[in-house]
Simulated scan of single mutants.
Amino acid sequence: MLSWAINFTAAMICIALILNLWRMVQGPSIQDRILALDTMCINSIALIILYGINMGTGLYFEAALLIAMMGFVSTSALCKYLLRGDLIE
């Protein structure tokens, strides 16, 4: 039963990733594209965690944590660049 729930959730997250990709390509403004990219990062973290639960190992949780940190820093840097036009003050 748990594997069925994990597979169903992974399928729903994959659909969400496809919709985020569509928003990133189709987005009317750069802010929509940044938000879609950040949401894709969160969805990919969720997929990695689900895969780690399915495989029964903790290695994937550490990888998800690293990707989360990189996603936060990259989103913050991109937003700062859009607001000020410069990353270094």
Rank of each mutant, 00 (worst) to 15 (best):
I48Y: 03
I53S: 12
L19M: 10
I45E: 06
Q31M: 06
F8A: 15
T57G: 07
M70Q: 02
A64E: 01
M12F: 08
G58R: 09
G52I: 00
I45V: 08
L59E: 14
L50N: 03
C41G: 15
M55C: 06
I13D: 07
A64H: 00
A64D: 02
M24S: 08
R33W: 08
L78K: 07
Y51Q: 04
F8Y: 14
S74Y: 04
L82F: 07
T57W: 00
C79R: 14
M55K: 11
E89C: 05
L66W: 06
Y81A: 09
M40T: 11
L35Y: 08
L35F: 10
S44L: 07
L19A: 14
G27M: 05
S29E: 10
L17Y: 01
A77R: 02
M12Y: 08
Q31E: 13
V73P: 01
N20K: 04
A16E: 13
G85E: 01
L2M: 14
R33K: 13
N54G: 15
L35T: 12
N7R: 12
N7V: 12
I42E: 12
S76A: 14
L66S: 10
I49T: 14
L83F: 12
Y60C: 05
I53F: 15
P28M: 02
G58M: 10
L35P: 00
L19K: 05
N54F: 15
S44M: 01
P28R: 09
I53Q: 10
S3V: 15
K80H: 13
L87D: 10
I6P: 06
L65Q: 02
M55P: 00
M69W: 10
M40I: 09
Q26H: 10
L47N: 05
L82I: 07
M40F: 08
I67Q: 05
M24C: 07
M70F: 14
I6G: 06
I6C: 05
L65S: 03
Y60M: 07
A46Y: 06
W22P: 02
L82K: 07
W22G: 04
S74V: 04
I88A: 06
K80R: 13
E89F: 05
A11W: 10
G27H: 08
G58A: 11
G58S: 13
S29I: 06
E89P: 03
S76W: 11
S44I: 04
I53N: 11
D38G: 06
C79Y: 14
K80L: 13
I15F: 11
I88Y: 08
A63Y: 09
R84K: 11
S29Q: 04
G58Y: 12
I45T: 04
L19C: 08
I13W: 05
A63M: 11
D86W: 02
I88T: 14
E89A: 09
L65P: 01
S29G: 04
I45H: 05
L35D: 08
L47S: 07
L82Y: 03
I13P: 01
N7K: 11
F61E: 09
L59Y: 14
D32M: 07
A5T: 10
I48W: 02
A36Y: 03
A10Y: 01
M69D: 09
S74L: 07
W4L: 15
W4G: 11
L35S: 06
L83V: 12
A68F: 02
S44W: 03
C79H: 13
A46P: 00
L2K: 10
L87C: 05
K80Y: 15
